[in-house]
Amino acid sequence: MDDIELADNPTRHRFELRQGGEVAAFSEYNELKGALLFTHTEVLPAHEGKGLGSRLIAFALDEVRRRGLQAIPACPFVAAYIRKHPEYLDLVAERSRRAFLK
């Protein structure tokens, strides 16, 4: 899996994971003041079951942190990822964090 590239594609409002030069997964977002609202994540069928979606979301959330923004996980995949990885919980607005606690 060394041929994986992760990047923000701001023109298309999404983070992308490319494998072999082709998009294998993406997570769409809307840019808000001080936050990214994640709306949809998709792993293309040929790439399912390889952990690529999780790798993509970790990258996207690391970018949110690096930029000093908050994450609004309207996308069920992103929300589930945050539930499983509480180290990203601080990126969610404090008033919404209890929805992500087990």
Rank of each mutant, 00 (worst) to 15 (best):
Q70M: 13
R55W: 04
L17K: 02
A79E: 11
A25F: 00
A46L: 01
G21L: 07
P10Y: 09
L6K: 11
H47E: 03
H85A: 04
E63F: 11
A7H: 14
R97Q: 15
M1C: 06
G51T: 00
D2Y: 05
R55K: 15
L101W: 00
C75R: 05
R97C: 13
Y88P: 02
F38P: 05
I57M: 13
R66P: 05
R98D: 15
H13V: 02
G68C: 03
E31F: 04
G20L: 08
L32M: 13
C75S: 06
A60N: 12
L56P: 02
R14K: 10
R65Y: 00
E42G: 01
L36F: 15
I72P: 05
P10N: 08
Q19R: 13
A35F: 10
K50R: 09
E22R: 08
I82H: 00
L17Q: 01
V23P: 03
A80I: 02
F15N: 02
R98Y: 13
D62C: 06
G53L: 08
E63W: 11
I72A: 10
L36T: 04
A35M: 05
A35I: 05
A24S: 01
P86A: 09
P10L: 10
L32Y: 04
H40R: 08
E22Q: 09
T39M: 07
I72R: 11
V64N: 11
R12G: 03
V92N: 11
M1D: 08
Y88D: 05
L37I: 01
G68I: 02
F38K: 06
F59K: 08
F59W: 10
N9P: 01
E31T: 15
P10Q: 09
A79R: 15
L61C: 09
L17A: 07
H40N: 08
L37F: 10
L52S: 04
T41V: 02
G20W: 10
E31C: 07
K84L: 11
D62I: 04
F26R: 07
E48H: 01
R98E: 15
G51V: 00
Y29G: 09
A25L: 00
V64Q: 12
R14P: 08
N30F: 14
I82W: 00
P86T: 08
I57N: 11
P73Q: 14
K33R: 12
G51Q: 00
A7I: 07
D8L: 14
A7C: 12
P73H: 13
F100E: 11
A71I: 03
F59V: 07
A99Y: 14
R97S: 11
S96W: 15
G34I: 03
Y81E: 05
L89W: 01
L17V: 01
N9Q: 10
P73A: 13
V78D: 13
V78I: 14
R14W: 10
A35S: 12
G21S: 04
Q70G: 12
T41K: 01
V92W: 12
Y81R: 05
L89T: 02
T39E: 07
D62G: 14
G51K: 00
K33D: 13
A71P: 03
F77A: 15
Y29D: 10
E28M: 11
A71N: 04
E5C: 06
R98L: 13
I72H: 06
Y88K: 02
G34K: 04
R98I: 11
L61F: 10
Q70I: 09
Y29F: 15
D2L: 07
L69Y: 09
G51E: 00
M1Y: 09
D3I: 03
R14S: 08
